[in-house]
Design a protein around this nucleic acid. Structure first.
Lengths: 224, 224, 224, 224
DNA sequence: ACAAGCGGGACTACCCGTTGTT
DNA sequence: AACAACGGGTAGTCCCGCTTGT
């Protein structure tokens, strides 16, 4: 869900050799990269195809060859975003399982690893495409928003499964609702993205994740 | 920051008598109401003046008489939103101070009151204009976003002041950063708005505020 | 036709006392002054009523009280311009008749006096409203352009009458067409206005009038 | 500077086959032709793109493909006008040099040839785009007016060069300023255009050029 | 696979004129 | 006499998508 997109550095732009343009996959990627950057900054409705194509160094012809229209681009953007996010979640789970076998420790590891990733940020972070989309929900077909819903559900479920198991092994100080507690992670992350952008402060994200981490430890009586 | 948006429904619409149109303040309000509703649903860049004016039952002439252009409308929208929010924050502080004199109890009362307000929601909640704006930041003049920044800072400061004081009276289990902890409230609220919209679940907001409430109690060892 | 309008200095502008606004003639004048200035710089079609009224510190209500619409303003502008021009022509004729009784000398005096007036210019000169209007002829009702036609005809006739008489008293080197020769004055003046504006050189006008002066002297064998 | 505007009449208009529209250069030309015609009659500010495009049988899409906006159209118009004018000046110089080797005779030939061209007019003559532009100077970017300045300077320089040389070969009756005398030609032409339009008299232009011709002859003592 | 030309509509801005009010 | 509010239309800009050509 976070994907440190490390700023989409397209070095190749317009002016490249004609022969280089004939790389269909690369053209499609350049368009998606430019679209993502601009949509994050201006919103989907505030971003024109012309602006995207100018930034990507592509033409209308290329665009309509690769996509069925603007709506299809919006959906493709969401799909690519969700796919990358799913890949990162999977890797995170693998890493957490490598570090610990106890489900609570796995959750704490997952939170900690994301915290770490976010603490190295220097710019305010582009944010989450899904949040951008829900604040312009009426512009999209239902199927497009569904992609975002599923993406966030994956995080919730991955954490909830472990928290449920953890609650059996380590009875928490108070009865917990594993689903709701798991959603807290995505809520804090999404909220921290907004605050980070509003205040122009990249450190805020790791900081707020720290609170989530602390909350879990207090709930389950870790160390203290 | 949340604003019980009960005021949006205009019953009077087009078709009213000519003589009724001569209420400048009402015309301005109708335009702002329609704009807020649509901008929340489609984003600022995805909302056309025509759509706003059709919904508000106003004409271009009226619009350009009251506003200097779309950018000015965007700013006026933010100003009105922030003003209403500030009023609600003030009322909330008054209410909390009436209920309790201890700063920690005041914070818990504030969180609890918002939680209560949010638990009565039935629709997914329109969300926060500031979050909508930051995801389309490039469409606005810097001054417009500054309004949102100040709005969120007010909540953070109102809570941080009390948390700092509370930490002196009730030494917390762990050393706390009052500012960061106070930001947690706005972070969770903003994040919960996003999730609530994504999942179409209005209860999620009160639920996540409950976690913030619980976190504070655990931190300060309330209830025991 | 030339009217050194000495730059329409309105010191009084908006912000003056309410009681001062109630001077109908002054309001009308302020509007005409602003209109003339802007129409000279942007053309009639390129000048909006709003811009004129903002510059004049007047409102729509005041405007439509004094004028029947934009077309009427255009006509009133032409009328005022032509009236002022006629007054200056009359004064010029009186002055020339005071200086000389010989018709040729009167013509040379008239040319010389205008030359003198123009040699004191420091800015490129606003130009002639009639020239501005003929290059936008389709925007006006025929009656409006007729005002300009008559204005230029007055100059031509005033000079032609004297030149006809002069040709009888001082047989010219070549047979002359008094009307055409008289038109030469207005032609050179209008042309010099254009060149002066194009090159940004105010001296050019007096310079070109000097050639007209010299031409007459050569034709009638004065001095040389 | 005068340009025999015989090229304006487009016979092909809307209704042509789709396949015919794919002639980019022709589309651009049609737009420029229509624009020139209308701008001469209504001024730049008084001419709408819709009117131009309706007259040209083109669409907004086509227009904004070929031009960056109305300002760019205004500049392109000036550039085309100046280029055509430069071509005619060059041809005129070639013709004059073919007819005579003496610089004075060349000047007289140039004036005479233009006189001849103008004496065949039957309509009041559209006028000079540069004059139209300077009377609406505030509507244009400085670069656009510069094109007109250079265009007029070319005529002045072409004549001044020859007049300077002529003054050495044929000492004039009075000392002359070649530049100023050369400017007289453009001044009279521009002024005659204005008068011709005001009075609706096409012959006036050749007539006034006749005076310039006579002035030169008198100055240099031609014919005797 | 991509590029250019173009169709036609949508969007913001603003324009001219009217109305109701003081 | 003057003003603020407004109606409704138009101007310039640009947008999305299609077509044609290579």
């Amino acid at each position: 869900m976070w994907i440190a997109k490390k700023r989409l550095q397209r070095t190749i732009r317009y002016g490249m050799l004609k022969s280089m343009t004939r790389d269909p996959a690369a053209t499609r990627s350049r368009i998606l990269d430019a679209a993502e950057k601009l949509v994050m900054a201006r919103g989907f409705g505030g971003t024109s195809l012309d602006a995207i194509l100018a930034d990507a160094g592509a033409t209308k012809g290329a665009f309509f060859h690769h996509f069925d229209g603007k709506a299809a681009l919006g959906k493709a953007l969401a799909e690519r975003f969700a796919a990358a996010d799913a890949a990162q979640l999977e890797e995170l789970e693998r890493e957490a399982e490598r570090l610990a076998s106890d489900p609570l420790e796995q959750v704490l590891a997952m939170v900690g690893l994301v915290e770490e990733e976010m603490s190295s940020l220097e710019e305010p972070f582009p944010g989450c495409l899904v949040a951008s989309y829900v604040y312009q929900a009426d512009l999209f077909e239902p199927g497009t928003l569904e992609i975002g819903r599923r993406m966030l559900a994956r995080w919730r479920d991955a954490l909830a499964r472990r928290l449920r198991h953890a609650a059996e092994l380590h009875p928490p100080r108070q009865p917990i609702d594993a689903e709701s507690l798991a959603s807290g992670f995505t809520a804090i992350l999404e909220g921290a993205f907004v605050l980070s952008k509003v205040h122009g402060d990249p450190r805020l994200i790791a900081e707020q994740l720290g609170h989530y981490h602390a909350y879990l430890e207090l709930l389950f009586g870790v160390d203290g």
